[in-house]
Design a protein around this nucleic acid. Structure first.
Length: 164
DNA sequence: GCCAACGTTGGC
DNA sequence: GCCAACGTTGGC
């Protein structure tokens, strides 16, 4: 079992949207980056965990947990000429772009903000925090996963960590 | 709205 | 293959 972090803009698709979906499941379509594609197609497996991250919003940070429930398969939105994510290079007989299905697991008791994540030496190697990393899907180590989720109950940790 | 950091495109 | 131009991402 592996762990991942998946970004989504809450204006487009939020953790609440995922929770409200039928079966609380959603195809993670629209990824158009080869590095991310390789992870979606080759590495992500049912049962893997994913941190749900809200990006490009007022309060960027980790807001919940999801689970991979279907391994990589061709992203059909790439085949639809009318679709925003249409890509003529991707043909059904030889797809360029892949997606996985994710399922809602839980919403965190609080948002663990990007600002907070940056404070911990334990997360120095987190791909999300590495300079210039704009991947929408990225791996998380088990240690990072445990550490981040361990922050959830630490309600005072937000200000406490910065006061130290 | 600004801007840094990328990835992609296309001329040569 | 090089590299400038351009578009996108995403924090602030």
């Amino acid at each position: 079992m592996r762990y991942w972090l998946m970004k989504s803009e809450p204006n487009t698709f939020s953790i609440d949207d995922l929770q409200q979906r039928p079966a609380q499941t959603e195809p993670w379509d629209g990824v158009r980056n080869y590095q991310a594609r390789n992870m979606l197609r080759d590495e992500m497996k049912p049962g893997d965990g994913a941190l749900f991250y809200h990006s490009n919003c007022d309060a960027p940070g980790v807001v919940g947990i999801a689970r991979i429930v279907r391994e990589g398969y061709p992203d059909p939105t790439a085949f639809e000429p009318e679709h925003k994510h249409f890509d003529p290079k991707s043909r059904p007989e030889q797809p360029t772009w892949y997606m996985v299905d994710v399922q809602f697991v839980k919403k965190l008791a609080r948002t663990i903000s990007l600002r907070e994540l940056k404070q911990y030496p334990e997360l120095a190697e987190l791909a999300l925090l590495r300079r210039g990393n704009r991947l929408s899907v990225m791996p998380v180590t088990e240690a990072q996963w445990q550490f981040i989720l361990g922050l959830e109950g630490d309600g005072a940790g937000v200000s406490g960590a910065s006061d130290a």
